[in-house]
Amino acid sequence: MTLPLLVVTAVAAEAEAVRAGADPTHVVVEPVGVGPAAAAAGTARLLATGNYCAVISAGIAGGFVGRAPVGSVVLGVRSIAADLGAETSDGFLPVDELGFGTSVISADPALVKALAAELPDAVVGDVVTLSTVTGTQATADRLAKSYPQAVAEAMEGYGVAVAAAGLPFAELRTISNPIGPRDRGAWRLKEAFAALSTASGRLWTACG
Rank of each mutant, 00 (worst) to 15 (best):
123 V>R: 14
90 D>M: 12
124 V>G: 05
72 S>A: 14
14 E>N: 08
120 P>S: 07
5 L>I: 14
112 V>S: 03
174 T>M: 06
119 L>P: 13
178 P>R: 11
165 A>V: 01
197 S>P: 09
48 A>R: 09
172 L>Y: 00
204 W>R: 14
83 D>Q: 07
69 P>T: 07
60 I>Q: 04
8 V>T: 15
106 S>P: 09
80 I>W: 12
151 V>C: 08
190 K>C: 01
23 D>G: 02
107 A>Y: 00
98 L>G: 04
90 D>Y: 12
146 S>C: 02
172 L>W: 11
103 S>V: 02
151 V>F: 10
57 S>T: 07
107 A>M: 05
179 I>Q: 06
128 V>Y: 00
43 T>A: 01
184 R>D: 13
68 A>G: 03
43 T>G: 03
35 G>L: 05
34 V>F: 10
188 R>F: 11
16 E>H: 09
67 R>I: 03
1 M>T: 10
136 T>I: 13
52 Y>K: 02
36 P>I: 10
9 T>I: 02
137 Q>L: 15
52 Y>I: 03
14 E>L: 02
35 G>V: 10
133 V>Y: 02
69 P>G: 12
60 I>F: 03
183 D>P: 01
83 D>N: 06
83 D>L: 13
48 A>T: 04
157 G>Y: 00
96 D>E: 15
186 A>R: 13
112 V>L: 13
29 V>M: 09
12 A>L: 07
23 D>K: 12
135 G>P: 05
41 A>V: 14
88 T>E: 14
79 S>M: 11
162 V>H: 06
171 E>K: 00
4 P>N: 09
55 V>D: 01
19 R>A: 15
148 P>Q: 14
188 R>A: 15
116 A>H: 10
106 S>C: 15
131 S>Q: 04
144 A>H: 06
187 W>I: 04
172 L>V: 05
36 P>W: 08
82 A>W: 03
123 V>Q: 11
146 S>N: 13
26 H>I: 01
93 L>R: 13
142 R>D: 12
81 A>C: 08
80 I>V: 15
115 L>K: 03
28 V>D: 14
8 V>R: 05
42 G>T: 02
112 V>K: 09
137 Q>T: 15
26 H>D: 12
71 G>R: 10
38 A>P: 03
91 G>F: 04
184 R>S: 15
144 A>S: 15
78 R>E: 11
110 A>F: 10
2 T>M: 08
73 V>S: 02
77 V>Q: 09
6 L>S: 10
180 G>Q: 00
122 A>M: 11
207 C>A: 08
173 R>G: 05
64 F>W: 01
93 L>H: 06
189 L>C: 08
191 E>I: 12
106 S>H: 14
117 A>I: 05
144 A>L: 02
28 V>F: 08
198 T>I: 13
53 C>K: 10
179 I>D: 03
78 R>G: 09
39 A>M: 01
156 E>Y: 01
105 I>A: 00
94 P>T: 12
26 H>L: 13
125 G>E: 02
172 L>P: 04
95 V>D: 04
29 V>Y: 11
41 A>S: 12
190 K>Q: 14
88 T>C: 05
126 D>I: 08
159 G>W: 11
180 G>K: 07
76 G>L: 10
94 P>H: 05
127 V>I: 15
166 G>L: 01
204 W>Q: 13
36 P>R: 12
48 A>Y: 03
77 V>E: 14
160 V>F: 10
201 G>R: 14
135 G>D: 02
67 R>P: 04
151 V>L: 13
77 V>F: 08
